[in-house]
Structure formats: C-alpha cells, structure tokens
Write a protein that binds this DNA or RNA. Structure first.
Length: 255
DNA sequence: ATGCCTTATTTCATAAGA
C-alpha cells in the first residue's frame, strides 16, 4: 500500500499537477494540506478512483484525504481544538484499510513574540491529547502533513539563518517530541537528490535549485505501521517545472 | 531572507505563508 502527504498550496491552482501526479504515482491514500478552498474539486480525483474527504473553509488552510482503499469514520477537526480565535480547518481524520489517518496543517506561528506562536503550541498540545484518545481505539495510526516545525537543526538549510525564528524553537520541538512519546515514529523519507530530506523550499531566489530547504512535512506512524515501511522518499520531481507547490510530497510504501 | 514568489479574495491591494 502506498501512502503520501503533500502540502499543495491551493488544490485549485495545483489541480492539473495533482491529477497528473496521482496518475503517475498511484498512491492508495493521500493526505493534502493547504487546499485553500471550501469546494474541493472532488470530481477530478473521483475519476481516478479516489474517494474524497475534505475540510476547508475558503482562502486559508484546508486539509483533505483521498483514498482508493476505503474511507470511513471521517472526523473534521478534533475535540477542544484551539482556534484563532475560532477553530480553523487544519485537521481531518479518516480510516482507510484499517489505518487511522490524520492529515494536519499545523499553524505557522509567524514570530515567536506573536499570539500566533502561542496558538501553534496550544494547537499541537491539543492534537496530542486528541491522538492519545484516538490511539486507545486505533492501534494503527498515521498523522502526517505540514507540521511547520523542523525537528532538528539539520532539518533547515542554515541553522544560523533561523536563530530567533519560529519552526526551530525548543517548545516547538518539544511539542513534536511529545507526539513521539505517544508511540509515534518519525518515518524519515530519503531525499532523491542532496543529503537532506527537505520537503519545502521557498519559491524565491532559486532556493529549490540551491537545495536551501526545510524538513517541515512529517510522517508520524505507530510502530505497527512504521515497522511495515519498505520505502519512504521525497518526490522532488513534483517541486520542479511550471507552477509547483512550494512543498514536495512524501511517499511512503507499506509492505 | 529583510517575504526578492505565490495564493485567494472583501482585487489592480492586501494578508499570509516559513
């Protein structure tokens, strides 16, 4: 079974590329983030045999899951989900082929001294609580997507450039560690080029071509799933060419 | 990198992204 996660930076703008990528890559389950629409273009992916669950409300955020191996127990958001000020469309849980899948788009945090940073930490803490409850009834679980946190200094192109910035702070990294403490394993994908498993490169100034990126998209899975992984890679081809997302998909094959 | 690109929208300007 092939699983994937991809921050598409607008499913509307990315639809032609998404459809081509689905046809070429043939994933069974795909978690999407930053769909940026209240009206997911379901028909275009249903033609390829996918069922769709989407949670979006317009201009910002938005998550979805596509599956061609069943799609049940759809949960938009989670209990007591923190908001800014109201809950946003950042989490979607579904069950596919016996695996509980969560597609998440963690708040950016903006700057360390902003209210949005506190919101980010509160949201991650809330996610942890929700997943702790989920794990009681779903022993095979994956939570993947854009976490907006680089787990280690090696996960950014230049740690010196991030001093004082969000995405690399101790509290953000502690929030990820708290998720792993639930029994979730960080499935690190292999880069197809270069030495770092970056998943995001800024659009500007040739960042992608200089491999000045970040690993902020993550695939966390229970040991029962992670132990079955036969391959995991970052599809940098999807970051190339005309009108790409600024994130590349992570593809994970389960034996 | 100091949003130098890109997105959608309350559009020809703005807010947000990381």
């Amino acid at each position: 079974m092939r699983l994937a996660t991809w921050n598409v930076n607008s499913v509307t703008a990315r639809l032609p590329r998404l459809v081509d990528w689905l046809a070429a890559t043939k994933p069974d389950i795909v978690c999407l983030q930053e769909t940026k629409t209240a009206t997911f273009p379901a028909a275009s992916v249903e033609e390829l045999g996918y069922q769709v669950a989407a949670h979006g409300d317009g201009r910002w955020n938005g998550v979805a899951v596509l599956s061609r191996v069943g799609l049940d127990e759809v949960t938009a958001g989670f209990p007591d989900e923190p908001g800014f000020p109201g809950a946003e469309t950042r989490a979607l849980g579904v069950t596919c082929a016996g695996v509980r899948m969560w597609s998440v788009y963690v708040p950016n945090g903006r700057t360390v001294d902003s209210d949005h940073y506190g919101y980010k930490l509160a949201w991650l803490a809330g996610l942890r609580t929700a997943l702790e409850h989920e794990l009681a009834t779903h022993p095979k679980l994956v939570v993947c997507g854009d976490f907006n946190v680089a787990p280690a200094d090696s996960d950014v192109w230049d740690p010196a450039a991030f001093v004082g910035a969000t995405h690399v702070t101790g509290p953000e990294r502690a929030a990820l560690a708290a998720l792993r403490d639930l029994g979730l394993v960080d499935v690190v994908p292999r880069p197809l080029k270069g030495s770092n498993p970056f998943t995001y490169w800024d659009y500007r100034a040739g960042m992608f071509h200089q491999d000045m990126g970040m690993r902020i998209d993550l695939f966390y899975a229970t040991a029962s799933v992670a132990g079955e992984v036969t391959d995991a890679y970052i599809d940098r081809e999807a970051r190339k060419g005309k009108a790409p997302s600024d994130h590349a998909p992570i593809v994970v094959d389960i034996g």
